[in-house]
Design a protein around this nucleic acid. Structure first.
Lengths: 190, 190, 190, 190
DNA sequence: ATATAATCGAGACGGTACGTCCCGTCTTGCA
DNA sequence: TGCAAGACGGGACGTACCGTCTCGATTATAT
């Protein structure tokens, strides 16, 4: 009934191969076939764990960073946001950016995967900011009643630029975005 | 030097087939092969015009709407933005939304295509809003010096939701977004 | 190291389809695509076994007849040759003739394939006649020292007519050819 | 009624291109498309003159050699045949051999082309040998009643080796073949 | 001199096959 | 049961030629 247990080294090899291949040939050039070949694993073994290359990448990325982003208390919402966004933007350069965009591509065409992505990655990031907003609200800096909208204002421009011009995600951009969000948060809904 | 001229009816048939197939089977189910088959055209003929299904869809979409979006003068930046965004969001439902998301997916994985998309579609939309901002600036409603940032604030949340949750793009969302952008525009960069 | 073994039924289906298609549409109308389609097999599976339609046909033909042609001992070289050539010529009518000519056409344009054809088919047939010659030599009927030349004399005219006028390969032609070869074999090289 | 006359330079360019391409890439690599491209002529212009690449090559070859092969009177059939075959075999090396084999490949799969080839090339060569036989018959060297069969005996082995092993067509081979044919020609049909 | 008519280059067009890649599933034998 | 190996049906890829077609520009003869 129990049989031979799954080899954890195999899990690691698969994720590793997926990341490496994406780095070298882009997400376009990534395939289940290629992952199996590079990791020295049979296709069956890959399919036993993941249903698509998207899931592999998502798993690889979820175990990486972003889960433990800094949410330092700088004393002001604007300061907190600036710190968080600067760190987040920095984390979107290089392979991480490529992988993130790849996941977006996948989500856009697959409702089920979108839900998975939201839960595993997007929601986690939103939660971080939600904490900042709560803290700001306690301080009296946040009058705007709709957290969800404010979160969109934070992450919308990031994804927009991540899609079309990742290099634009500079510390200066982070600062300006933080300032704007803080401004909107301070206002009330009319 | 001259040669037989390209048949415009063929152009039309190709774009038509691409849109129809996407509508029926999703962008996933769209293929150069399928486009050729449905339009009654040889593959070669499709490849003569477009290098990928993404380019077909982009061309089909670029010739559609959005190029002549309404930019009515309501007397205030907030009003103008509300009108434009409401119309834009409405245009993102149904096939148009699917096609737009497909283009995003494509751009995300292909830098060259991203540039093409920006030029043919994104830039055009940004231009519309830039006009609104100029008008607002003339009225004294815009103190923020960076148009580009304000444009990101307008379109960022739209793409964010377009990627992960298209249904959220309601008229109410448009109104709230317009209000926030107008608020930020009114402020100066410190 | 092992992997799933190849299905022998697939081998059979492929060869079968190749022969059937050639019979119906000629070798011109035969294609790897068509073979795959008719045999209900994927193209990949065909290509896994054969590199060209020529190889398929060759394999189909090699497994057929000719490998075990009759070499009855009639008591004389001339009689033996007559029997063998009559049977061989008879086997060259219908599909077999078409397939044989097709192989010739292929060999003519591809040195590597020519070598393969020689090894799998031509050499086998030559071996049959070589046995006849050896028998004749034992009987004192063969004085000519060069077996290879005599073999060319036997099969040369057959291929010549097979190429340009297959209908000429009658029993009478076989008898006359046998007589001539026996005559040359009896003489010595001066 | 008359219109613009065909440019003879174009004819020449087409044949030239066909021969060059076959020499470089083999008959396999020859195509109507390629001929047009290399000769700097439109496809239409090629098709106006020839229906297939086979016809181009045939025309190119027919205008070359073989039409005026030497038929010197050496005083004996065996001598005459040796001279003719030695010259013929020599002419089958290099490009000429390739082109000849190409024509055979074409003929084998196209009855109409086979007839054309026979008429334009094969029959001419047979006629040369027929003259030799007539001369021998006058001298009393030929008792065999069937010229056609003797011709097959002459050219059969040549084509056989041309197909499978062109290098075998040496002067020694020519001499041995001439000797054998002369021997058979001297005998009577029983 | 001016139709008339065929030739020529360029290149679009519907079509067929090519040979390759990857999909997701399966079968085998070993651990 | 996990796992490497690899066969399998399926579908799309992008390319090469096929033979036909439509252009505009020439070059002849026949009015």
């Amino acid at each position: 009934m129990t049989g031979r247990p799954r080899d954890p080294a195999v899990d690691e090899a698969i994720r590793r191969a997926a990341v490496d291949l994406t780095e070298q040939h882009g997400y376009r050039g990534l395939s289940m076939e290629g992952i199996a070949a590079l990791s020295g694993v049979s296709k069956q073994t890959v399919y036993r764990r993941y249903r698509s290359k998207g899931e592999v990448v998502l798993d690889a990325l979820a175990g990486y960073a972003f889960t433990h982003l800094p949410t330092p208390d700088t004393g002001s919402l604007r300061g907190d946001l600036t710190a968080l966004l600067t760190a987040t933007f920095a984390g979107q350069q290089g392979v991480n950016g490529t992988l993130n965009r790849a996941l977006a591509a996948e989500a856009v065409q697959d409702q089920a995967f979108a839900a998975l992505l939201w839960e595993k990655l997007i929601a986690v990031r939103r939660e971080s900011v939600r904490e900042l907003l709560a803290r700001g609200r306690a301080r009296g800096e946040v009058a705007h009643p709709d957290d969800e909208f404010l979160l969109d204002l934070v992450y919308g421009p990031m994804w927009y630029r991540l899609l079309f011009d990742p290099a634009a995600l500079t510390p200066a951009y982070a600062a300006e975005l933080a300032r704007s969000v803080a401004l909107v948060a301070a206002g009330t809904r009319p």
